[in-house]
Nucleic acid binder design. Structure first.
Lengths: 374, 374
DNA sequence: TTGTAAGCGTTATCAT
DNA sequence: ATGATAACGCTTACAA
């Protein structure tokens, strides 16, 4: 009827619960072969699965890790999950995936739920707003690893892209391709650390290369705002060779499609004719590059130059870091419980920040395929 | 140190655990206002959260629902999740989201994990392979609702698109737009029920309309295979007006980008010139439509005609169906446990299959913008 | 209105 | 080498 318990198995095998438990936990050394066999049979015939809830209750370890993502619609999040799930399998952990849909309220709700289910640790790609309850969680005693974004005043492990190095790579390429001006394009939410890091790094590096710079904000939902940006940049492009740098894949898509749609401006790699102000405008083309390398970047015509993030590795590494903490954390708790608690704070309590190198993928959208007329 | 328990709260408030428990479960009627206040304070000051594991163990209800998806990379899956999460919030359930990455082995592994964590029910978008252990789960006593795909020989609730009605709508539109031939394009895995349903419905309906039909298989990873399809269809298009119908959004993207890339064939809505066999080919354009309405369908130039699925509602409804079963199921278990088990199988044990209507979104990719020369 | 005690399925401790 | 028994944190009769 209801799910069989360890007692059912014990009864059916004619042994004590303890032995069954030992079998389940691989303490095979302390079990005689005949017993082992009987238990194995009983388990199989009853189709028994140990109750992880009860296990967790007793052991104090649920093997659950909360994975809280700002926005599952972003392919970046999905890519992270691949790495996390693979790493979880290795470590015998179970990810509990939650999508905050860019709402702090939901983020907080899930944070609560995850605590309630006694997740042993959290992997968070935070929405990045100050109202977040994340702060309290980190200050509590459950380990947290931040992914992609850091949060002001929260000190914990984090994994992300080396935005400075990536920006250098990209801007160097743009300069070498003859671009003289760089415009960084992102969505409104500039409280997000990675977006800010990318912006300042790109602009700084561009200035170092003697390029003129600007920073623009779009609203992906609002076609008008995108058209306006393009208008503005098309204007600039009549004077200097200009490249747009999108802060992420979704912004890039919006820009690329608008560029493809229009007739008065285009991308370098495109062979569609550009008609703008008649003869005096060989500069009706805007370069385009982007952080993130979504599927469609390669498929588009022309292909879009991107900085590919090792998303799988970022996710996996985040989990490894967490798993680390889990072990030392459990140990610390055990020690304190047994009375010989050390007043000095945990040994390696300092946050570890890992960053990964991006890979620059050059495609035609930044080709130096056009010459300056003037 | 470790998380506070209900006893800690009771002690801190100077009351019995029972009262705290009552407070937690909203049995506020049986609590004097002063007691209530003291408990509330204690909970707040200790930052206490009830342990859901222990709760579930005692009550036999974990409030966990497993959500097992064939492929999280498919935006359709993500869209489903939105609906599921919203509905879960309403019903006080916690979704455990798992991604099988199109691997039966992973699917089975997660099925096991979900049983182990005592998920009360499962929402499954199955990989659709016969080796799946899904069968055993459905035959066990935990309720399952299938999403989008049914599985041969598994009788349980399901929610999906009304593929026949959707196909009719689309084909009728194509016929009215002057297309004389329809080619259904999908990826290899034809063991997937929805893909098969769509194929047969589209082809049948097209025949009814006196159109010639064909069915093609592509491998999204393999550019060659896509190019080959297009070659083939371009050929056909010189004779009759031909429309491609993609089985899902990802197939559509591959086709649209290949069409945009090429010069010898194009889409109706596009104003790019098409050069094919000189003068005798006004038919160098292929119509294109697709099941699924991903973000990019509207943004592309030209826009792609699609059948939009009410994904949010599908996900939400799936959860409601499950929640239903959860209640009646729990009741049944309770009755059996109390000895007066009814030998006759559960009352409403017959599978319910809900289907939703698609919305046809006509865009330029199927415009009758070209005339037959011959 | 409030508290006491038993038990959910498991593991850890201690006997045997 | 094996098993009885007491927790883990919570809910729920039942008692007061």
């Amino acid at each position: 009827m209801s799910a069989p318990t360890i007692s059912d198995v014990a009864k059916s095998a004619g042994v004590g619960k303890t032995s069954v438990s030992r079998f389940l936990n691989g303490e095979t050394a302390a079990l005689s072969p005949p017993l082992r066999a009987r238990i194995e049979n009983a388990i199989a015939s009853l189709n028994y699965r140990p109750n992880q809830m009860a296990r967790g209750l007793k052991r104090g370890r649920t093997r659950l890790v909360g994975v809280l993502l700002a926005d599952l619609q972003n392919p970046f999040s999905v890519a992270l999950i691949q790495g996390i799930e693979a790493a979880c399998r290795e470590c015998g952990l179970m990810p509990m995936i939650c999508n905050a849909g860019n709402e702090v309220e939901l983020e907080n709700r899930f944070l609560d739920l995850l605590r309630t289910y006694r997740a042993e640790g959290l992997l968070v790609n935070p929405v990045g707003l100050p109202e977040s309850a994340l702060r309290n969680v980190v200050e509590g005693d459950i380990p947290v690893v931040l992914m992609d974004r850091k949060v002001e005043g929260i000190a914990c492990d984090s994994v992300g892209l080396d935005n400075v190095s990536a920006s250098k790579m990209l801007v160097t390429h743009l300069a070498a391709s003859g671009f003289q001006s760089v415009a960084f394009v992102s969505e409104a939410w500039s409280s997000i650390s990675s977006r800010r890091e990318r912006e300042s790094a790109v602009l700084a590096e561009a200035r170092l290369n003697g390029m003129s710079v600007s920073s623009l904000v779009v609203d992906r939902e609002d076609e008008q705002s995108i058209a306006r940006i393009i208008d503005q940049m098309r204007e600039s492009a009549t004077r200097v060779r200009t490249a747009l740098v999108a802060a992420n894949g979704q912004t890039m898509l919006a820009l690329a499609l608008e560029l493809a749609r229009r007739r008065d401006v285009g991308l370098p790699g495109s062979d569609a004719p550009v008609a703008y102000r008649g003869a005096d405008a060989p500069l009706g083309r805007l370069g385009l590059a982007s952080f993130d390398d979504p599927d469609w970047a390669a498929m588009m015509t022309p292909g879009i130059t991107t900085l590919r993030q090792p998303t799988f590795d970022i996710g996996a590494r985040a989990l490894y870091l967490l798993n680390d903490r889990l072990d030392t954390h459990a140990q610390a708790v055990r020690e304190k419980a047994s009375g010989r608690g050390n007043a000095a704070s945990s040994p390696a309590d300092t946050p570890r920040n890992m960053s990964f190198e991006a890979e620059l993928i050059v495609r035609s959208s930044t080709h130096a395929a056009f010459a300056l007329a003037g």
